[in-house]
Nucleic acid binder design. Structure first.
Lengths: 188, 188
DNA sequence: ATTATTATAGACAAATCGGTATACCTTTAG
DNA sequence: CTAAAGGTATACCGATTTGTCTATAATAAT
């Protein structure tokens, strides 16, 4: 059985390189070099680069959402406060030195076959985050939890784009102020 | 003097290919083949692929904003109605068969040197759209036109991402409903 | 201890990348 | 008519792409 730790090394390294330099622009040779792994080992774990990309995106989804949930719940107690805290978690992310936008937005901008497994992971990622926000909205007693969740997610995506493309890292605070409006509307 | 029409052919063809398949993934050989132009002609007009990318992004910015302004003002008379019409123009765009998201968001996800000229064009594009919305907001008599413009733009960017990445093309209508809230707040 | 497996390093393949150069044709201006 | 310039077509360059393969060393299970 191939070693799970080698697989981890490859995925972790590829994740970083894909995120910082793009998927197409990152070659296999660079990945194995940075991961200190032979080419055969990589192809022993993944049949192709596409398969590696898929594994990396799944890993990123897992990491990102777990981190989002953990940080959000660390910062606030009540469900309503958690909904607001979402934007502060975004704010902190935008200000990280390694911030390169949302990996799934970036990947969707590179992978143009919208029916490919990798693109499906991107779409699913967005839906799963929406689901999480929807749960919080439900706990907070929102009238239409799914509607509020979608509204807050539109704000979050908008802030991510503003921060990455326009370079306006304060967008999270603007989105937060906007989010409060809809939270209050849904809870009154 | 190199022919302007050849240059146009190249830029137009490259724009289409870059938008549909990505910048990195589109090779020079494909561009010249599709544009029915020799390689030397291309390099006679553009010193490098980077220069071509830059020209394409400028062209796209010009086309997109002019189209946005034209369509918006075609659909509505009053400044307030124009602000709302922005979302309907987005809606129509999302439902186009060739819709592949926002070219500048996609490009920013591929070009990771945030100080490169191409990335600057991406950032500038977003600012220029913001400026236009800001003008409309001013005409409509908004209390803080720039603030309202930014809010509406966050909604627009969020809707674009939702439509492209999550595949939810109805996002423009959700964003529209949200936008009305802030328009009314700014005009009351 | 033997055997099977997993790893390594790296040569190799065939294709493609961005970019240059050569040779010839075609258009346009004086 | 001549000559310069812009065009085409294509060969070529070195580097890089994904992916395969061979030979060998390290590791793990029986």
């Amino acid at each position: 059985m191939p070693s799970a730790s080698k697989r981890e090394q490859i995925v972790t390294t590829a994740l970083q390189l894909f995120y910082q330099n793009g998927i197409t622009a990152t070659g296999i040779d660079l990945i194995i070099s940075e991961a200190a792994v032979s080419k055969k080992t990589l192809y022993n774990h993944f049949h192709s680069k596409d398969e590696l990309v898929l594994a990396v995106l799944r890993k990123r989804d897992e990491y990102f959402r777990n981190n989002l949930m953990r940080e959000t719940e660390k910062q606030a107690d009540t469900p309503k406060a958690k909904l607001i805290a979402l934007f502060d978690v975004m704010d902190a992310w935008f200000h990280e030195k390694t911030f390169c936008g949302c990996m799934f937005i970036n990947a969707s901008g590179e992978l143009f076959d919208s029916k490919s497994p990798s693109r499906s992971v991107c779409a699913e990622h967005k839906h799963l985050i929406c689901d999480y926000v929807s749960e919080l909205a439900k706990e907070a007693g929102a009238k239409e939890p799914k509607k509020l969740a979608k509204q807050l997610n539109i704000l979050i995506e908008g802030a991510i784009v503003f921060a990455h493309v326009a370079g306006d890292k304060e967008a999270a605070q603007d989105a937060k102020e906007m989010g409060k409006v809809f939270i209050n509307m849904a809870l009154e």
